[in-house]
C-alpha cells in the first residue's frame, strides 16, 4: 500500500518544515486548531486511534496547565480578572496561555508524526550529499548504539554474576568502562577496514532507493503554492492589550482554508489510499 511517507524525502521535508514552522512559531488559535486536528488525525492513521487519544489526553492536561500558569508570569492585557499580591491576573494572559498550549500540543504532535515518517535513512539521503563525512558519522553511530547497548548487557550480566559485593552504581560504571574500551578498539578495526575499501577516496557514491518522480514534483509544487498563499493572506490575531483580530477579508479566509487543506493533506492521502486498497482487494 502506498502511503504518505512513501513520497520523496525532499517533498516530505518541504511539507513538514511548512507545517512545523506554522505551528511552532504562531499563536493564532484558528490556524493552530486546524494544525492540531491535521496532526492528530494523521498520527491516528499511522499509530492507531488509541495511541493518538492517549497522547491527546496528555496534551490536554499540559494545555490546561500552561493556560493556568501563564497569567502568573505575564501581566499584560487590559481585562483584569482578579489580583494576586497586587499582580493582575488578566483574561488576555489566560487566553494567550491557552493558545501557547495549543501551539505546544500541535508542535509535539507534528514532531511525533515526523518521528514516524523520517527514519534515519531519509535524513541521511537529504543531508548526506551536503556533508558526506558527517553522514557517515551519523549512520555509523546509529548502527553502533544498539550494538553498544547489547554488549553492555552481556558484560553487565557476566560482571554481576561474579562480583555481587560491588554497589549497583559501581557495577554499572565498571561495565560501562569495559564497553568503552571494547568499542574504542573495535573502532580502529572498523576504520582500517573502511580505509581498505576506499573510504578516503574522493569519488564515493551512495545507494538510495528514492527517486523523484513527476508525482513528487506535483506534490512539492502543491505545497509551495499552498505555503505562499497562506503567507499572503495571513491574518493577525492580537492578544495584548485586548484580544482582537484584524478586519477579515477574502484573502484571510482563503489563507485559513488553505491552511486547513495543508494540515489535513497527509490524513486525506492515507484515507484515499486506504479506500483504493480496500477496493483493489475486493476485486481479487
Amino acid at each position: 500500500m502506498n502511503t504518505f511517507r512513501n513520497l520523496h524525502p525532499v517533498t516530505l521535508l518541504l511539507y513538514f518544515s511548512f507545517v512545523t514552522v506554522f505551528s511552532v512559531f504562531n499563536f493564532n488559535p484558528v490556524y493552530l486548531c486546524f494544525s492540531l486536528l491535521g496532526a492528530a488525525l494523521y498520527f491516528a492513521s499511522v499509530k492507531g486511534v488509541f495511541v493518538m487519544l492517549k497522547s491527546m489526553a496528555g496534551y490536554f492536561i499540559m494545555l490546561l496547565a500552561v493556560a493556568a500558569l501563564n497569567p502568573l508570569f505575564s501581566h499584560n492585557g487590559a481585562t483584569a480578572l482578579f489580583f494576586i499580591n497586587d499582580n493582575r491576573v488578566t483574561l488576555e494572559a489566560f487566553c494567550f496561555g491557552a493558545a501557547l498550549g495549543l501551539a505546544i500540543a500541535s508542535a509535539l504532535c507534528w514532531f511525533s508524526c515526523i518521528g514516524e515518517v523520517f527514519d534515519s535513512e531519509k535524513l541521511l539521503y537529504l543531508f548526506g550529499r551536503a556533508s558526506p563525512k558527517l553522514a557517515a558519522v551519523i549512520s555509523l553511530s546509529l548502527r553502533l548504539v544498539p550494538g553498544i547497548f547489547k554488549s553492555f548487557k552481556e558484560i553487565h550480566s557476566a560482571q554481576s554474576s561474579f562480583s555481587s559485593n560491588q554497589g549497583r552504581v559501581r557495577r554499572f560504571l565498571s561495565s560501562f568502562s569495559a564497553v568503552i574500551t571494547q568499542s574504542l578498539e573495535n573502532s580502529i578495526i572498523t576504520a582500517d577496514s573502511m580505509n581498505a575499501r576506499g573510504f578516503a577516496l574522493k569519488k564515493r557514491t551512495r545507494f538510495s532507493r528514492f527517486r523523484f518522480t513527476a508525482y513528487d514534483a506535483g506534490f512539492s509544487a502543491f505545497f509551495v503554492l499552498l505555503g505562499t498563499f497562506i503567507c499572503v493572506g495571513w491574518f493577525s490575531f492580537e492578544f495584548y492589550p485586548v484580544i482582537s483580530i484584524g478586519r477579515l477579508n477574502a484573502l484571510n479566509i482563503m489563507s485559513v482554508v488553505l491552511f486547513a487543506v495543508m494540515s489535513l493533506t497527509p490524513f486525506a492521502y492515507e484515507v484515499k489510499e486506504g479506500v483504493k486498497w480496500k477496493i483493489s482487494l475486493s476485486k481479487i
Binding site: V137, I148, F152, S183, L184, I188, A191, D192, N195
Partner: peptide, 20 residues
Amino acid sequence: GRRVVTLAVMTALSVAGRFI
C-alpha cells in the same frame, strides 16, 4: 577514517549511555 569512526563511537557511547 579513524577520526570519523572515533567520532561516531564517542557519539554512540554517549547516546547508549542514556539507555544504559
